[in-house]
């Protein structure tokens, strides 16, 4: 009976929501960006599964239900874009060129560094779209021949990193304009970075949402070409 329940969606959804609710409370209480709710939830869930020797496959049934909501959420990013359309259209040139430069920098630096340090072909290909949002990155990796679930995990870890120190790093290098900051964080850290940017600044959050889609589109077109040429 226990097994049947563990493998039902009920278990995975309950565990995910409980961990996330606690992680959010910790984030608000401590006010520390290092307690990023996504990162803390992932660590807590993995810890729970390992501690009780529950296989990952048991968690997947519920995990899929939570992940399902990512789809309509990406569609919903059209709303902040529409609401802020004037400010965004005013800056269309810096936005488009900034994201294109970032998408190229992402592919070349991630795969180049992994190659220099002796990463296997599978790892290099799985890392290449790490800044692109999960559903797009998985689609790209299926096409170029990496490991889609590894990519999904690396994408989320990248997102956590960008959410934890993105806005602070941007200020450090002199990127204080909210639109430019949102562009940088959204291009590097997709939806998880955007969630943080929505807390920092409204225009920055909207631009960050735009960067998720555009970086995904640009990478989906460029990466298969780069792989065909170099790998």
């Amino acid at each position: 009976m226990i097994d049947e329940l563990l493998y039902s969606p009920l278990f995975g959804v309950a565990l995910t929501l409980a961990c996330y609710a606690l992680a959010q409370k910790l984030y608000v209480r401590t006010g520390s960006i290092f307690f990023n709710p996504v990162a803390v939830s992932i660590v807590a869930i993995i810890g729970f599964l390992l501690a009780f020797r529950i296989p990952h496959e048991a968690y997947v049934a519920g995990g899929r239900l939570v992940l399902f909501l990512l789809g309509p959420s990406v569609v919903a990013l059209a709303v902040p874009l529409y609401v802020r359309r004037r400010e965004i259209l005013e800056r269309k040139v810096p936005i488009l060129l900034g994201i294109t430069a970032g998408a190229l920098a992402s592919i070349l630096s991630a795969s180049g560094l992994a190659w220099l340090l002796g990463g296997s072909r599978e790892v290099i290909l799985s890392l290449a779209p790490k800044s692109v949002t999960t559903p797009i990155a998985i689609g790209i990796v299926e096409k170029i021949g990496g490991l889609p679930p590894l990519t999904a995990a690396l994408v989320v870890l990248t997102g956590c990193l960008g959410a934890i120190c993105g806005p602070e790093f941007c200020r450090l290098i002199g990127v204080r304009d909210p639109a430019a900051m949102g562009l940088a964080v959204g291009t590097a850290a997709h939806g998880i970075g955007t969630a943080r940017m929505l807390e920092v600044d409204r225009l920055g959050g909207a631009v960050s949402g735009l960067a998720i889609g555009l970086n995904g589109l640009i990478t989906a077109f460029i990466l298969p070409l780069i792989v065909a040429l170099f790998l």
Partner: peptide
């Protein structure tokens, strides 16, 4: 939005 990424990270 960030919550929906958690299951992929657990992978």
């Amino acid at each position: 939005l960030a919550l929906f990424f958690v299951p992929a990270g657990v992978g």
